[in-house]
């Protein structure tokens, strides 16, 4: 099955610019479906980016983040070819992760 994570990490000088798009419904648990039943809450609670085993970006999310979240950030201290590992865990215990090379 295809990954839910798309990531691009590009080195500019000594700064790595990271962009991510994650496919996730981020259901708040407050919305009803066409039958009038609540769609259960399903949202990412933890998102992490690791470089050389060290977390460079950590996010604790709740229901305020919209569907298919997009994240952009920058960090120092990486080199071309290094690996960046992106992982998420949601409130139902589902997870996904992807490792990409910094370009």
């Amino acid at each position: 099955m295809a990954s839910t994570i798309r990531v691009r990490a590009i080195l500019n000088g000594d700064i790595t610019d990271v962009q991510t798009l994650i496919q996730h419904p981020m259901d708040t648990g407050l919305v009803k479906d066409a039958k009038g039943e609540i769609i259960p809450a399903r949202y990412i609670q933890q998102l992490s980016f690791e470089h050389n085993g060290k977390a460079v970006f950590l996010a604790d999310w709740g229901t305020a983040v919209s569907k298919d979240p997009y994240v952009k950030f920058a960090f120092k201290g990486a080199a071309k070819g290094d690996e960046l590992k992106v992982s998420w865990v949601d409130n139902l215990g589902a997870t996904d992760s992807l490792t990409a090379k910094i370009q």
């Binding site: 798309r6 691009r8 962009q19 991510t20 798009l21 496919q23 298919d68 997009y70």
Partner: peptide, 11 residues
């Protein structure tokens, strides 16, 4: 322009 690098319509 930023978002077009990973556009929301991609899926």
């Amino acid at each position: 322009k930023d978002k077009e690098q990973f556009p929301p319509y991609e899926f």
